[in-house]
């Protein structure tokens, strides 16, 4: 392999490496977003359960006399 061939190959490989690095970073971002969506879905489910539970009856005050 000549010197020129090495440099040309390196230029193309650098571009490939940057695109691959971008894809890896994006994959991490997607997994973070997925985790956050799951957390929010869990939060929304808990809130719905709390709202659907029957409210405890208020204690009646005893009337004196």
């Amino acid at each position: 392999m000549t010197s020129a061939e090495k440099y040309v190959t390196a230029a193309y490989l650098v571009v490939l490496a940057v695109v691959l690095a971008y894809i890896v970073i994006y994959a991490f971002k997607l997994s973070r977003l997925e985790r956050e969506v799951a957390e929010l879905a869990e939060l929304a489910r808990r809130r719905r359960e709390t709202q659907s539970e029957p409210e405890p009856e208020p204690e009646r005050e005893e009337v004196a006399g």
Partner: peptide, 16 residues
């Protein structure tokens, strides 16, 4: 991102 790639590939071309 494309600017970084321009500088890097241009630099390699300049070297050779």
């Amino acid at each position: 991102i494309f600017g970084i790639l321009t500088l890097v590939t241009g630099s390699i071309w300049a070297r050779t």
